[in-house]
């Protein structure tokens, strides 16, 4: 397909940076192996990275600007289980669940490329279940904090910005997870019905789906997972 090369009639490729530039600017498509949908998802995720970065940087800024002391997250997010005081236990479980879901997602992608429909759908459902579990635990955490009097505008443990940043950032991330769960369910449903085998036009857009949809959904899922790692490190551990 590389007509640009044929035309120049030379087989020598530039090395180093010029080579990178030559590859990117070569004929028809810059990323040769990647489908449109996949490139689109990557670029969207790049943009979304900037959103989360801005949120996290803003959180750090208000943490510096506020005059009241910042509460100790280990204590705020501690639970008493069976009389034992466990700091951050719920967050640890949530993190574990979400990271496991990335594992099942990766397995689902693998099965999808093997055209193993049942296994793919099953693994995607497990992933979605993990995701729902995560959102459920987050809801529990929210209600616990709200119960203790933490609000976006005030906070009995210290700086009101703690409540504001907590609800905004975990809320935004939780929304991402929820959307991810919905995407996973839709794609799993399509896999089960075999829509990707006979390339039936999908709903809404009327476009033909391919198994790559599973991988694209997976990209999103891993991204949401990765973002959580940063939230975990910067908000809960710091």
């Amino acid at each position: 397909m590389d007509t640009a090369q044929l035309e120049h009639g030379t087989a020598t490729r530039p090395q180093g940076w010029p080579g990178v530039v030559a590859d990117w600017s070569s004929d028809q498509r810059s990323f040769k192996g990647a489908s449109w949908g996949k490139v689109m998802m990557w670029i969207f995720l790049l943009s979304d990275t900037f959103i989360f970065s801005c949120f996290l940087l803003s959180y750090m800024t208000v943490r510096m600007s506020t005059t009241e002391p910042w509460p100790n997250p280990s204590e705020v997010f501690a639970l008493e289980i069976g009389g034992v005081h466990l700091p951050l236990i719920l967050i640890a479980i949530m993190t574990f669940v979400l990271i496991s879901s990335s594992g099942t997602m990766a397995m689902a992608v693998n099965c999808a490329y093997r055209r193993d429909r049942r296994k793919t759908a099953a693994l995607m459902l497990v992933t979605a279940l993990f995701g729902a579990l995560f959102v459920g635990m987050q809801a529990f955490e929210w209600s616990k904090l709200i119960h203790e009097g933490v609000r976006p505008w005030e906070n009995p443990f210290g700086a009101p910005q703690f409540g504001a940043a907590f609800f905004t950032i975990t809320g935004f991330h939780g929304t991402h997870v929820t959307i991810g769960v919905i995407i996973l369910l839709v794609v799993a449903w399509k896999v089960l019905r075999g829509e990707f085998d006979d390339q039936r036009p999908g709903f809404l857009t009327g476009r033909r789906g391919r198994y790559e949809m599973v991988e694209i959904a997976g990209l999103y899922w891993h991204f949401v997972d990765l973002v959580w790692v940063f939230i975990f490190a910067l908000f809960y551990l710091w």
């Binding site: 007509t3 640009a4 070569s26 028809q28 498509r29 810059s30 490139v39 689109m40 670029i43 969207f44």
Partner: peptide, 23 residues
């Protein structure tokens, strides 16, 4: 804008006709 912008970028990167290199 994001919905449109993703379209413009991917179209430029991935949907050029034959012979239309970036340069």
């Amino acid at each position: 804008f994001t919905m449109g912008g993703l379209n413009y970028v991917v179209t430029v990167l991935q949907a050029r006709t034959r012979g239309m290199t970036l340069m």
